[in-house]
Amino acid sequence: MKLKKLVLTGAAGRLGSYLREPLSKMCDELLSTDISDDIGTLYPGETFVKADIAKFDEVEPLLEGADMVVHFGAIVDERPFEEMLGPNFVGSYNVWEAGYRHGVRRVVYASSIHAVGMYPKTEFIDTEVPHRPDTFYGLAKCFTEDLGRMYWEKRQMESVHLRILSAAQVTNPRALGSWLSYDDLIQLVTRAIDTPVVGFTIAYGVSNNDRAPVDNARAAFLGYRPKDNAEQFAKEILGEAEPADPMDSGTMCHGGPFASVELGQSAVKGMGIVDDRKKT
């Protein structure tokens, strides 16, 4: 299925950098957008427009003629609520409302495990568990998932909410279960786009890890079948790790460091995430 027009928000981000090329091959026109001034060399059929998703008048014209939106634009860390409000809460409303006004059929949204991050890791959770956010960042994911459900039930606008666990290089024991490889990310987004009917769907963004702590069975109809497994890194990672503290919520909860950080304080700062975004 080749679409006429796709819109990608957050195109300058690390995950956006890996999505741009495969998305450009799925449509006649890929409109990539971000608050950054530049995203590098454009792929065939791709255009770039600088825009702030927190401003409706900048978002709305981008979605004209679009079939679907892949919405990855946001602050990707914990911040004070006032800083999150525009890009992470209002930005989601702007995408859905502008999409509705222009007849967009579906939004594929980068949700997060942090919408349910306070569940203990000893609980194998599925996509139907009630929200249990670990931060204001996670709360924004809950808001957008509920927004998507409402627009489906009230306005028949489809959405797939990808609860990404950790799409980054495996550098710690938690990632042995939570890793989402870039190849599997691309497959997951592709399935969220090319599945004929999705309604309102939540799916976990996680690779085929032996230690994966979540259950994607209810989203099996998407046809997402991850291929990569973080167990290949287990011997090295566990051999270098300090003993786990069972009283530390960052160790015991699905949200990892986001579960233990103070509200409004950065959780990403100490995670050692490698900025290996794809260069163009």
Rank of each mutant, 00 (worst) to 15 (best):
45 G>H: 05
12 A>I: 11
165 L>S: 03
200 F>K: 00
178 S>L: 15
152 W>L: 05
91 G>Q: 03
252 M>S: 10
220 A>G: 12
233 F>D: 12
259 A>F: 10
175 A>G: 09
10 G>H: 09
70 V>K: 02
198 V>Y: 01
245 D>A: 03
241 A>I: 08
60 E>P: 00
195 T>H: 05
156 Q>I: 02
228 D>M: 02
171 T>P: 06
62 L>T: 04
17 S>F: 00
80 P>K: 11
69 V>Q: 05
277 R>F: 13
58 E>P: 01
260 S>W: 08
119 Y>S: 06
71 H>Y: 10
205 G>L: 03
47 T>R: 15
69 V>R: 05
210 D>Y: 12
54 A>T: 13
164 I>V: 11
111 S>N: 01
176 L>E: 08
48 F>W: 06
46 E>M: 08
172 N>C: 13
232 Q>Y: 11
236 E>N: 09
279 K>S: 13
58 E>N: 00
10 G>Y: 06
37 D>Q: 14
87 P>N: 02
217 A>D: 12
77 D>E: 10
149 R>E: 11
140 A>Q: 13
244 A>E: 12
101 R>D: 02
185 L>F: 01
128 E>S: 15
69 V>A: 02
184 D>L: 02
15 L>R: 05
229 N>D: 15
262 E>P: 14
51 A>P: 09
97 E>A: 01
270 G>V: 09
252 M>N: 07
165 L>Y: 09
18 Y>R: 01
122 T>F: 10
261 V>G: 14
152 W>V: 05
157 M>A: 00
37 D>E: 15
86 G>Y: 06
24 S>R: 10
234 A>K: 14
276 D>P: 04
9 T>L: 03
159 S>I: 03
12 A>N: 15
28 D>C: 03
142 C>A: 13
24 S>A: 15
251 T>G: 00
103 G>E: 03
243 P>Y: 10
252 M>I: 15
180 L>E: 00
258 F>Q: 01
224 Y>E: 12
120 P>W: 06
24 S>P: 06
206 V>F: 01
196 P>M: 07
102 H>I: 09
135 T>N: 12
4 K>L: 12
58 E>M: 08
225 R>P: 05
2 K>Q: 11
91 G>P: 08
62 L>P: 10
246 P>E: 05
215 D>N: 15
176 L>S: 08
219 A>I: 14
211 R>C: 05
273 I>Y: 14
66 A>T: 09
48 F>D: 02
77 D>S: 13
75 I>F: 07
277 R>G: 12
79 R>P: 03
123 E>S: 09
262 E>D: 14
171 T>W: 00
42 L>Q: 04
203 A>I: 14
29 E>P: 03
227 K>A: 14
255 G>A: 04
161 H>T: 01
280 T>E: 11
160 V>L: 05
20 R>N: 04
15 L>H: 08
66 A>S: 12
99 G>Y: 11
272 G>V: 09
29 E>C: 12
280 T>W: 10
16 G>T: 02
257 P>Q: 09
272 G>N: 03
